[in-house]
Protein backbone atom coordinates (compact mmCIF):
# COMPACT_ATOMS: atom_id res chain seq x y z
CA UNK A 1 0.00 0.00 0.00
CA UNK A 2 1.37 3.40 -0.99
CA UNK A 3 1.79 6.21 1.49
CA UNK A 4 -1.19 7.95 -0.03
CA UNK A 5 -3.35 4.83 0.23
CA UNK A 6 -2.28 4.41 3.84
CA UNK A 7 -3.07 8.08 4.52
CA UNK A 8 -6.54 7.56 3.07
CA UNK A 9 -7.12 4.40 5.10
CA UNK A 10 -6.11 6.08 8.34
CA UNK A 11 -8.22 9.15 7.51
CA UNK A 12 -11.25 6.90 6.98
CA UNK A 13 -10.62 5.34 10.37
CA UNK A 14 -10.66 8.80 11.91
CA UNK A 15 -14.01 9.52 10.23
CA UNK A 16 -15.40 6.23 11.52
CA UNK A 17 -14.26 7.06 15.06
CA UNK A 18 -16.08 10.39 14.82
CA UNK A 19 -19.23 8.72 13.52
CA UNK A 20 -19.17 6.44 16.56
CA UNK A 21 -19.44 9.52 18.77
CA UNK A 22 -22.13 11.49 16.96
CA UNK A 23 -24.14 11.66 13.77
CA UNK A 24 -22.03 13.10 10.97
CA UNK A 25 -22.21 13.31 7.19
CA UNK A 26 -20.54 9.92 6.94
CA UNK A 27 -21.14 8.90 3.33
CA UNK A 28 -20.07 12.23 1.81
CA UNK A 29 -16.92 12.35 3.99
CA UNK A 30 -15.82 8.85 3.01
CA UNK A 31 -16.41 9.26 -0.71
CA UNK A 32 -14.00 12.16 -1.15
CA UNK A 33 -11.04 10.96 0.93
CA UNK A 34 -9.10 9.41 -1.94
CA UNK A 35 -9.48 12.60 -3.96
CA UNK A 36 -8.13 14.53 -0.99
CA UNK A 37 -5.28 12.06 -0.55
CA UNK A 38 -4.27 12.51 -4.18
CA UNK A 39 -4.49 16.27 -3.96
CA UNK A 40 -2.46 16.58 -0.77
CA UNK A 41 0.21 14.01 -1.62
CA UNK A 42 0.74 14.75 -5.31
CA UNK A 43 -0.95 17.86 -6.56
CA UNK A 44 -1.21 20.76 -4.15
CA UNK A 45 1.86 22.94 -3.86
CA UNK A 46 2.24 23.33 -0.13
CA UNK A 47 4.76 23.59 2.65
CA UNK A 48 4.06 20.84 5.18
CA UNK A 49 5.70 22.88 7.91
CA UNK A 50 3.77 26.04 7.07
CA UNK A 51 0.09 25.49 6.22
CA UNK A 52 -0.27 29.26 5.73
CA UNK A 53 2.68 29.57 3.32
CA UNK A 54 1.63 32.51 1.11
CA UNK A 55 2.61 30.81 -2.15
CA UNK A 56 0.59 27.65 -1.52
CA UNK A 57 -2.09 26.29 -3.81
CA UNK A 58 -5.60 26.61 -2.40
CA UNK A 59 -8.31 24.03 -1.88
CA UNK A 60 -11.93 24.99 -1.29
CA UNK A 61 -14.27 22.24 -0.14
CA UNK A 62 -17.50 23.46 -1.71
CA UNK A 63 -19.32 20.35 -0.48
CA UNK A 64 -18.77 21.54 3.06
CA UNK A 65 -20.71 18.61 4.47
CA UNK A 66 -17.67 16.49 3.63
CA UNK A 67 -15.81 18.44 6.32
CA UNK A 68 -14.86 15.46 8.47
CA UNK A 69 -13.16 13.82 5.51
CA UNK A 70 -11.07 16.94 5.02
CA UNK A 71 -10.38 17.31 8.75
CA UNK A 72 -9.28 13.68 8.92
CA UNK A 73 -6.83 14.11 6.03
CA UNK A 74 -5.50 17.35 7.52
CA UNK A 75 -5.04 15.55 10.83
CA UNK A 76 -3.10 12.76 9.13
CA UNK A 77 -0.88 15.40 7.54
CA UNK A 78 -0.26 16.98 10.93
CA UNK A 79 -1.92 20.25 9.90
CA UNK A 80 -4.77 19.76 12.35
CA UNK A 81 -3.82 18.73 15.86
CA UNK A 82 -7.05 19.45 17.71
CA UNK A 83 -9.73 16.91 18.66
CA UNK A 84 -11.72 16.60 15.43
CA UNK A 85 -14.86 16.01 17.47
CA UNK A 86 -14.73 19.63 18.57
CA UNK A 87 -14.68 21.00 15.04
CA UNK A 88 -17.87 22.20 13.33
CA UNK A 89 -19.78 20.03 10.89
CA UNK A 90 -18.91 22.39 8.05
CA UNK A 91 -15.53 24.04 7.44
CA UNK A 92 -15.13 27.35 9.26
CA UNK A 93 -12.59 30.11 9.08
CA UNK A 94 -9.82 29.94 11.63
CA UNK A 95 -9.29 26.17 11.37
CA UNK A 96 -5.74 25.37 10.19
CA UNK A 97 -5.76 24.21 6.57
CA UNK A 98 -9.26 25.51 5.85
CA UNK A 99 -9.14 28.10 3.09
CA UNK A 100 -12.78 29.16 3.09
CA UNK A 101 -15.87 28.56 5.18
CA UNK A 102 -18.46 26.56 3.27
CA UNK A 103 -21.59 24.59 3.98
CA UNK A 104 -24.37 26.21 2.00
CA UNK A 105 -24.17 24.50 -1.38
CA UNK A 106 -23.24 26.25 -4.59
CA UNK A 107 -20.86 28.81 -3.12
CA UNK A 108 -17.43 27.23 -3.53
CA UNK A 109 -17.06 27.50 -7.28
CA UNK A 110 -17.65 31.26 -7.17
CA UNK A 111 -15.30 31.69 -4.22
CA UNK A 112 -12.65 29.62 -5.97
CA UNK A 113 -13.13 31.62 -9.15
CA UNK A 114 -12.48 34.79 -7.16
CA UNK A 115 -9.40 33.22 -5.59
CA UNK A 116 -8.10 32.12 -9.00
CA UNK A 117 -8.77 35.54 -10.51
CA UNK A 118 -7.14 37.18 -7.51
CA UNK A 119 -4.03 35.05 -7.97
CA UNK A 120 -3.84 36.02 -11.62
CA UNK A 121 -4.32 39.72 -10.90
CA UNK A 122 -1.59 39.52 -8.26
CA UNK A 123 0.74 37.78 -10.71
CA UNK A 124 0.92 34.67 -8.54
CA UNK A 125 1.66 31.28 -10.00
CA UNK A 126 -1.00 29.66 -7.88
CA UNK A 127 -3.61 27.04 -8.67
CA UNK A 128 -6.98 26.88 -6.97
CA UNK A 129 -8.80 23.60 -6.51
CA UNK A 130 -12.41 23.22 -5.52
CA UNK A 131 -14.28 20.04 -4.67
CA UNK A 132 -17.99 20.06 -5.34
CA UNK A 133 -20.54 17.41 -4.67
CA UNK A 134 -22.56 16.08 -7.56
CA UNK A 135 -25.93 16.74 -5.98
CA UNK A 136 -24.60 20.20 -5.20
CA UNK A 137 -24.53 20.92 -8.92
CA UNK A 138 -28.31 21.26 -8.78
CA UNK A 139 -27.64 24.77 -7.43
CA UNK A 140 -27.74 27.25 -10.30
CA UNK A 141 -24.99 29.44 -8.86
CA UNK A 142 -22.49 26.74 -9.89
CA UNK A 143 -23.37 27.31 -13.51
CA UNK A 144 -23.08 31.07 -13.12
CA UNK A 145 -19.57 30.41 -11.83
CA UNK A 146 -18.81 27.86 -14.56
CA UNK A 147 -19.74 30.39 -17.23
CA UNK A 148 -17.74 33.13 -15.50
CA UNK A 149 -14.58 31.05 -15.05
CA UNK A 150 -14.56 29.97 -18.67
CA UNK A 151 -15.25 33.49 -19.95
CA UNK A 152 -12.39 34.88 -17.88
CA UNK A 153 -10.17 31.95 -18.92
CA UNK A 154 -9.24 30.95 -15.39
CA UNK A 155 -6.74 28.29 -16.40
CA UNK A 156 -5.49 28.11 -12.81
CA UNK A 157 -8.85 26.85 -11.57
CA UNK A 158 -9.55 23.11 -11.25
CA UNK A 159 -12.82 21.66 -9.98
CA UNK A 160 -13.22 18.08 -8.85
CA UNK A 161 -16.74 16.69 -8.80
CA UNK A 162 -17.21 13.99 -6.17
CA UNK A 163 -19.51 11.97 -8.44
CA UNK A 164 -20.89 9.48 -5.95
CA UNK A 165 -24.25 9.58 -7.73
CA UNK A 166 -26.25 10.09 -4.58
CA UNK A 167 -27.75 13.12 -2.99
CA UNK A 168 -29.72 13.24 0.22
CA UNK A 169 -32.87 11.58 -1.03
CA UNK A 170 -31.40 9.15 -3.52
CA UNK A 171 -29.88 8.69 -6.98
CA UNK A 172 -28.94 12.03 -8.56
CA UNK A 173 -30.48 10.86 -11.82
CA UNK A 174 -33.76 10.12 -10.12
CA UNK A 175 -33.92 13.32 -8.01
CA UNK A 176 -33.01 15.80 -10.76
CA UNK A 177 -30.79 14.32 -13.46
CA UNK A 178 -27.29 15.75 -13.93
CA UNK A 179 -26.26 13.68 -16.95
CA UNK A 180 -24.78 14.21 -19.44
CA UNK A 181 -22.56 15.88 -16.84
CA UNK A 182 -19.25 15.90 -18.71
CA UNK A 183 -20.93 17.34 -21.78
CA UNK A 184 -22.42 20.13 -19.69
CA UNK A 185 -18.99 21.19 -18.44
CA UNK A 186 -17.59 20.96 -21.98
CA UNK A 187 -20.44 23.10 -23.27
CA UNK A 188 -19.58 25.70 -20.63
CA UNK A 189 -16.02 25.84 -21.97
CA UNK A 190 -14.22 23.69 -19.43
CA UNK A 191 -11.63 21.00 -20.06
CA UNK A 192 -12.97 17.75 -18.68
CA UNK A 193 -11.38 14.62 -17.28
CA UNK A 194 -12.92 11.56 -15.70
CA UNK A 195 -11.39 9.06 -13.33
CA UNK A 196 -11.99 6.34 -10.81
CA UNK A 197 -12.28 8.49 -7.69
CA UNK A 198 -10.82 5.80 -5.45
CA UNK A 199 -7.65 5.09 -7.44
CA UNK A 200 -5.31 7.64 -5.94
CA UNK A 201 -2.68 7.17 -8.64
CA UNK A 202 -5.27 7.60 -11.37
CA UNK A 203 -6.70 10.70 -9.71
CA UNK A 204 -3.25 12.28 -9.52
CA UNK A 205 -2.50 11.39 -13.12
CA UNK A 206 -5.82 12.82 -14.27
CA UNK A 207 -5.24 16.07 -12.37
CA UNK A 208 -1.76 16.36 -13.82
CA UNK A 209 -3.16 15.80 -17.31
CA UNK A 210 -5.54 18.73 -16.73
CA UNK A 211 -2.79 21.02 -15.49
CA UNK A 212 -1.79 22.68 -18.76
CA UNK A 213 -4.38 24.90 -20.38
CA UNK A 214 -5.71 28.42 -20.35
CA UNK A 215 -9.27 27.46 -19.53
CA UNK A 216 -10.60 26.01 -16.28
CA UNK A 217 -10.65 22.25 -15.89
CA UNK A 218 -12.92 19.81 -14.12
CA UNK A 219 -12.24 16.26 -13.07
CA UNK A 220 -15.29 14.09 -12.59
CA UNK A 221 -14.20 11.59 -9.95
CA UNK A 222 -16.49 8.57 -9.94
CA UNK A 223 -16.77 7.60 -6.30
CA UNK A 224 -18.81 5.45 -3.97
CA UNK A 225 -20.68 7.14 -1.18
CA UNK A 226 -19.58 5.67 2.13
CA UNK A 227 -16.48 4.12 0.53
CA UNK A 228 -14.57 1.81 2.89
CA UNK A 229 -17.43 0.99 5.23
CA UNK A 230 -19.15 -1.99 3.57
CA UNK A 231 -22.68 -1.53 4.85
CA UNK A 232 -22.62 2.21 4.07
CA UNK A 233 -21.25 1.92 0.53
CA UNK A 234 -23.79 3.15 -1.99
CA UNK A 235 -26.51 3.43 0.64
CA UNK A 236 -27.92 6.96 0.70
CA UNK A 237 -29.37 6.38 4.15
CA UNK A 238 -25.80 6.84 5.39
CA UNK A 239 -25.69 10.39 4.00
CA UNK A 240 -25.78 11.30 7.65
CA UNK A 241 -25.57 8.85 10.48
CA UNK A 242 -24.09 7.65 13.73
CA UNK A 243 -22.52 4.23 14.12
CA UNK A 244 -23.69 1.96 16.91
CA UNK A 245 -21.20 -0.33 18.63
CA UNK A 246 -21.65 -3.22 16.20
CA UNK A 247 -21.49 -1.01 13.13
CA UNK A 248 -18.43 0.68 14.53
CA UNK A 249 -16.69 -2.67 15.02
CA UNK A 250 -17.54 -3.80 11.49
CA UNK A 251 -16.33 -0.52 10.02
CA UNK A 252 -13.05 -0.59 11.91
CA UNK A 253 -12.49 -4.22 10.95
CA UNK A 254 -13.10 -3.47 7.26
CA UNK A 255 -10.65 -0.59 7.28
CA UNK A 256 -8.09 -2.58 9.25
CA UNK A 257 -8.24 -5.74 7.10
CA UNK A 258 -7.36 -3.81 3.98
CA UNK A 259 -4.15 -2.58 5.57
Amino acid sequence: MSNADELARRARLRVVELAARKAIHLGPALSLIDVLAALYTRILRRDPARPDWPERDLLVLSKGHGAYGLYAVLAELGVLTTDLNELPGHPSDGIPGIEAATGALGHGLSLASGLALGARLAGKDRRVYVITGDGELDEGSNWEAAQFAAHHRLGNLVAVVDRNRFQQEGDTEEVCALEPLADKWRAFGWRVGETDGHDITAIGDALNALRAGDTPAVLIAHTTKGKGVPFAEGDPSWHMGELDAVQHRIAVAALTTTA
Partner: peptide
Protein backbone atom coordinates in the same frame (compact mmCIF):
# COMPACT_ATOMS: atom_id res chain seq x y z
CA UNK B 1 -24.85 35.39 -6.74
CA UNK B 2 -21.64 34.60 -8.59
CA UNK B 3 -20.69 38.29 -8.61
CA UNK B 4 -20.69 38.36 -4.83
CA UNK B 5 -18.99 34.96 -4.46
CA UNK B 6 -16.21 36.05 -6.80
CA UNK B 7 -15.86 39.32 -4.89
CA UNK B 8 -15.47 37.32 -1.68
CA UNK B 9 -12.77 35.17 -3.28
CA UNK B 10 -10.96 38.29 -4.47
CA UNK B 11 -11.14 39.76 -0.97
CA UNK B 12 -9.71 36.54 0.44
CA UNK B 13 -6.86 37.01 -2.03
CA UNK B 14 -6.06 40.33 -0.38
CA UNK B 15 -7.70 42.51 -3.01
Amino acid sequence: ANLVGVAAGLARSGL
